[in-house]
Computed example of a mutant assay.
Amino acid sequence: MFGVPHNIVDDLLTNLCTFIEHRIFWGGKIMLKTIAMGSAILVQGIYVKTLPDGRMTVHVDGAHYSGMPISQAA
């Protein structure tokens, strides 16, 4: 499409659809959250849900990651 590599267009469309989906679902507010996966890996993404065991799920580039939420600094 117009000299742009196909995978870049797919990524842009996927991110746009995710953005629109979350804007509608959250009433226009996208909540970015940070989770810890293990002791050395932090992931920041769009909040999806909180699991019964206290872990939180976030959405990043078409994938979901679950881990313990990081509390906000004072």
Rank of each mutant, 00 (worst) to 15 (best):
M1Y: 14
M1N: 12
M1S: 14
M1V: 07
M1L: 12
F2W: 12
P5I: 00
H6Y: 12
I8F: 08
I8R: 15
V9D: 00
D10S: 04
D11F: 11
L12D: 11
L13Y: 07
N15A: 13
L16W: 08
L16H: 07
L16A: 14
C17D: 14
C17L: 12
H22P: 00
R23N: 05
I24R: 12
F25I: 06
W26E: 09
G27N: 02
G27H: 02
G28R: 01
G28A: 04
K29A: 11
K29D: 15
M31G: 05
M31A: 12
L32E: 15
A36T: 06
A36V: 04
A36H: 02
M37H: 04
M37W: 04
G38E: 03
G38W: 13
G38A: 09
G38K: 09
S39Q: 08
I41A: 05
L42N: 10
V43P: 03
Q44E: 15
I46C: 06
V48Y: 04
K49Y: 00
K49R: 14
T50I: 05
L51P: 00
P52A: 02
D53N: 15
G54M: 10
G54D: 11
R55N: 07
R55G: 02
M56I: 13
M56Q: 14
M56P: 02
T57H: 02
V58Q: 03
H59G: 04
G62D: 07
A63D: 10
A63M: 12
Y65D: 09
M68A: 06
I70G: 00
I70E: 07
S71K: 06
Q72C: 09
A74W: 05
